[in-house]
């Protein structure tokens, strides 16, 4: 049986990385990011990366770490507001950015994983983000064509995996991870727990093992970006 379980984040990325590659990274803000795989990617010194990720982390965590080391050439993202180093590199022209509306971002990744090279959406019609793209009318409405997104490697974060790669996510840490798992030529999942095969009810599997090539268990820090509480009265 093929072994999908790797001992360390470094081992889980071994042989997958090259300069100029495209990497998808799951997460929404710092929630549900494959934090230790990002550290391993930084330590690999892989350069000229195109990173497809909803956000760019913060200055000292998540993808922000790879911006500090100038390993990212281009970001495909929906919102990058929490990162000063990002702003600096973008304004100086060192970093290229493709902004994508969030729903279009999710669907382009899903399409990449599902073998659908393009689709039409009403989102962004009439805005700068639809300029230069093919438009088509359907049933009296104008839609813009959007292309799939795929990656050489997808780095995702799940809560639990079994040894054959079935994944279960937790709460809003799911976000873009399931689509990215489908859209990577090779998908590496960082998880909090690896359980024996057969111990996840098949009805409860969120991402089927067919989409997951490598698994590594880590201790997640799970940093919180905006800790907001209700005071106890």
């Amino acid at each position: 049986m093929i072994n999908k379980v790797y001992a360390t984040p470094d081992a889980a990325l071994d042989g997958l990385l090259r300069d100029g590659m495209t990497v998808m990274v799951g997460g929404f803000g710092l929630c549900g990011i494959p934090e230790k795989l990002i550290l391993a990617l930084r330590d690999s010194a892989t350069r000229e990366i195109t990173a497809i990720s909803n956000n760019a982390g913060v200055d000292d965590w998540g993808l922000g770490l790879l911006l500090q080391t100038r390993q990212i050439r281009k970001m495909v993202s929906t919102y990058v507001g929490e990162n000063d180093e990002f702003a600096r590199q973008f304004l100086s022209g060192e970093l290229e950015i493709e902004f994508v509306p969030q729903g279009t971002f999710a669907e382009r990744i899903r399409a990449g994983g599902a073998g659908i090279p393009a689709f039409f959406t009403r989102t962004a019609v009439g805005t700068p983000l639809a300029e230069g793209k093919e438009h088509h009318d359907f049933d009296g409405h104008t839609y813009v064509m959007e292309r799939w997104l795929k990656a050489d490697v997808a780095l995702v974060k799940a809560w639990k995996a079994d040894t054959v790669g079935n994944l279960v996510f937790r709460k809003t840490a799911r976000n873009f991870n399931p689509m990215m798992a489908m859209a990577g030529t090779v998908t590496v999942a960082e998880v909090e727990e690896i359980v024996p095969v057969g111990s996840i009810d098949p009805d409860s599997v969120h991402t089927a093992g067919i989409f997951v090539d490598r698994i590594v268990k880590t201790d997640s820090e799970k940093r919180i970006e905006q800790r907001t509480i209700t005071p106890r009265s």
Partner: peptide, 10 residues
Amino acid sequence: MVKGVGGAMD
């Protein structure tokens, strides 16, 4: 500085 559009267009 453009921070992005998030989900607003959708």
